[in-house]
Design a protein around this nucleic acid. Structure first.
Lengths: 224, 224
DNA sequence: CCTCTATGTAATCATCGATTACATAGAGGC
DNA sequence: GCCTCTATGTAATCGATGATTACATAGAGG
């Protein structure tokens, strides 16, 4: 039980890249461990020591790879964001190219689904309390891109006469507040007291999105 | 600097009620200190020891009044909720009695204003991560009342023909997700990256509420 | 083969939540 | 008016955590 073998199998399979020395790939393993801890007990359940324990290394080892706990959480957040974006991208790839409002809806739905399915990881990347966003440049860039994307979709929708109002910025923020709010209601355990059972969550997410979209859609006059 | 006088002035002014012994009113003072700590550094900045320090007592003293940190946070949350509800009540008292949709809007606006003005306290009562909600019965009851209140307002609005859809539950959840989401965007520091400056926040909150309300309002046909 | 550096270990420190044994100040019985 | 009793506060201590430091080691490359 005292970690007798340190993964000796991995010795041979290591070429030129800056791969690590002793452990297999401690940095990576620590991030995975932290992702798991967050999933199990929420973001605040992530402790450097517990991640080290799961990786089978001493309590000080992680600090060779991360300056402090915050740096670990930043790496965790960047991994989570990568997964999140990948899902969003997949959803958009399947959405109809010519209908901006449908694409907007598909985006919102993918956002909500990922947030429902990965509450802890979603909280890490969005709550702003779990790491210093100023250090996570990749994540900030990603976010900016997504913001620009929704802005463009709304502009296109307006251009095509799909919207009944031209206050695009207000509409954009409203939509964002809506999906973020629903995601957080789920994370924060509000939905049961609002009469939404576990089984209904996904369906309600879709309904909520539709209440919003039908509210901004032009109904009178020509549609396109 | 070594706490020479333990508030000797308060000795005389204490009648029959179950007032405390040594300290003036440590329980109360600890709650106030914790509220202050949360305001300054966010809910996670609340530590039992720091609250004790601010109250001028030893590190163990708070545990005479609160079983653990969670109990302190619960008391803090209940105080915050009391203030929150008081503000909501004041707003509703000023809203027109005969127009349910206007009352609904007034409610939402009061909600948003309080959340903007007291982000840390709002987070404590709503995020669900800072104390065990099962222990806070008063708070749960309060919440249930507010939920019932919004439900009633929407039902009245529908009754009066103010709504263009009868899917009241979906509308209710959508509205809640919206205000909660906007409040959290503010707390979590999202608004700047969505192009909302500090000075615009209050106005944007109102706009967002109006985008939603105009979306659910019946426009065609008779209004009332 | 030898050295050099990246990586991991062990020991240590401060802070925090929490518990325990002890001290004390008022309240109320007598 | 004294005496005891209990609520309250203190001091010391424990275990967990983040973080730092001195030391050990394994592989790379001259």
């Amino acid at each position: 039980m005292a970690r007798p073998a340190k993964k000796p199998a991995k010795r041979a399979a290591r070429p030129a890249p800056p791969k690590p020395y002793h452990h297999g790939d401690l940095r990576r393993v620590l991030i995975e461990a932290a992702l798991g801890l967050a999933e199990e007990g929420g973001p605040q359940a992530v402790s450097v020591r517990e991640a080290a324990r799961r990786a089978g290394v001493s309590a000080g080892a992680p600090f060779r790879h991360f300056a402090d706990r915050d740096a670990l959480m930043t790496a965790v957040a960047e991994e989570a964001q990568r997964r999140f974006r990948s899902e969003i991208g997949a959803a958009l790839a399947e959405a109809p190219a010519g209908d901006p409002l449908k694409r907007f809806r598909a985006f919102g739905l993918a956002y909500l689904r990922w947030a429902m399915g990965n509450p802890a990881h979603f909280e890490i990347i969005s709550s702003g309390r779990h790491f210093d966003h100023d250090r996570a440049t990749a994540l900030s860039r990603d976010n900016a891109e997504l913001i620009a994307l929704t802005k463009q979709m709304l502009a296109d929708a307006f251009e095509k006469g799909q919207l009944r109002s031209g206050e695009l910025k207000q509409i954009q923020i409203t939509g964002r507040a809506l999906v973020y709010g629903f995601a957080r209601m789920n994370i924060d355990g509000h939905l049961p007291r609002w009469g939404v059972t576990e089984a209904e969550v996904e369906r309600m997410a879709e309904s909520v999105l539709d209440v919003f979209i039908s509210g901004i859609t032009r109904t009178t006059g020509s549609q396109r």
